[in-house]
Simulated assay, not measured.
Amino acid sequence: MSERDVTEAGPELLASQLMYMKALPAEWLPAYRAVPRELFVPDVMWPGVTDGTGGAEAIDRRENPDAWFRAVYSNTSLTTQWDDGAHTGTRRGNSPTCSNSQPSMVFSMLAALDVQPDSKVLEVGTGTGWNAALLSERVGSENVFTIEVDPQNATGARERLNAAGYDPVTGVGDGSQGRPASAPYDRVLITASLREIPPELVRQTRPGGRIVAPYATEYGGEAVVRLTVQENGNATGPFVGPSAFMRLRQQRTFRTHTREYLGGPWPADGRRSRTDLSPEDVADWLPMFAIGLRTRGMFPWAQPYCDGSYTLWLRDDKVTSWATADYEPGKDAFEVYQGGPRDLWGSWCPRTPGGPSRGDPGSSGSGSR
């Protein structure tokens, strides 16, 4: 397929896919067609894969335009920045820090936002500018206010928006503080994951207004929440679907190494037990999200081994307590060690019987940690 064929067929094929998935509502189809995604993707980007954002190698439009257009008109997130802009070149960096989000997620969140023709909208996280352009097409540029913490991303987005014929109010700053000078807003859209909803954003939303954001627990798992602001200033509402976004920079967490918890070689002073709950049963986004909603100050980390086994680490954010659960394929009981005052495994796992575990502590899954 030539570049021309990809350019002409790609947008409609993607639209059909999104509508089949019920991710692109009919009321957003005109905006989708009026705001080509390609106008908001830089020449060099990294398509995502199903197991995370930014998994593929870079595609440069100038060198491989057909592959670039295919990626743009696929239901895939496209990483556009690594390491807060410190990364250069076409190799992948350490952490993706900006992307043009997966189209099905973009339009699902816009549908949840439920904008009306005259809605006044605040967007937190301009990114590449695509969301701001879609909103401008729907409610008018004069009703869209968007803020971006990264000056480089903000400049690029502003240029793309102007080139596409849109002129929303843009700004550089801490999105968690909103934009009080233009408040109140009818709708607030947040395009970075949050561990807590910033109270400033709630205060800047009028009663009856709506906030849509990806909410991530400290433990893990993430879902889009749709909140309605009440007359008393509270904001309540349901989770409407899974999500996977980069964390709001003001709410990033930096973890302490496991060695800081042990005080000596593993298992140090850990208490040994066993469980019939497999670490595999709590590895998907939904159980992780549920665990995160039920616990506080705890987070996981999986340490894989070459034979397919792994150790699931649990640690607390106070650097006082830890737990490990060793997963081995084919087993129906799993060794657990815990140290410190908090019972991290037992706090959310009721099926952890006490007593000595089976197996040798030096067996697979208990090696160097």
Rank of each mutant, 00 (worst) to 15 (best):
V172H: 03
G85Q: 05
R92L: 10
W82R: 07
T53S: 13
R195D: 09
Y305R: 15
E280M: 12
N131M: 03
A34G: 10
L135Y: 11
G175H: 04
I197G: 02
V229H: 06
W345A: 09
S141V: 07
R138V: 02
A235C: 09
S141T: 12
T76V: 13
V319G: 06
A183C: 14
T295W: 04
P356F: 05
F245S: 10
S368H: 09
D281C: 00
F299C: 00
G264A: 01
S77M: 13
S363T: 08
S366N: 15
A216F: 03
W46Q: 08
S273M: 08
T126V: 08
W266I: 09
R272L: 10
P265R: 05
A325D: 04
D281H: 07
D83W: 00
V240H: 05
R195H: 14
R274Y: 15
R206H: 05
G263H: 04
F254N: 02
A268F: 09
R226P: 00
T275D: 08
G330P: 10
R37V: 02
R226G: 02
L135G: 05
W266C: 04
W345M: 13
V124C: 03
E222Q: 08
A31K: 00
Y215V: 11
P180Y: 02
G48I: 09
D186I: 00
Y337D: 04
W345D: 07
D118E: 15
D43M: 03
L312Y: 10
D332H: 06
W28G: 01
S357G: 09
Y310G: 00
M109Y: 01
Q250W: 04
G367V: 04
E280W: 07
S74R: 04
M105K: 07
N234I: 03
P199F: 01
L78R: 04
S366M: 12
S16I: 09
P350N: 03
A67H: 08
G340Y: 01
T170Y: 01
R158C: 13
M298C: 11
A157C: 03
G355A: 01
S363L: 06
W28E: 00
I147Y: 03
A71V: 02
D167P: 00
Q338F: 07
P329C: 03
P65T: 11
R351G: 07
P353Q: 02
D174T: 11
G85T: 07
N162E: 14
R272S: 11
K120H: 12
T324Y: 06
N162W: 14
L113I: 01
E63H: 10
W130K: 03
A192P: 07
P353E: 05
G208N: 09
E159G: 05
G359I: 12
T79F: 07
Y73F: 15
S321F: 04
G55F: 11
Q17Y: 03
S357N: 10
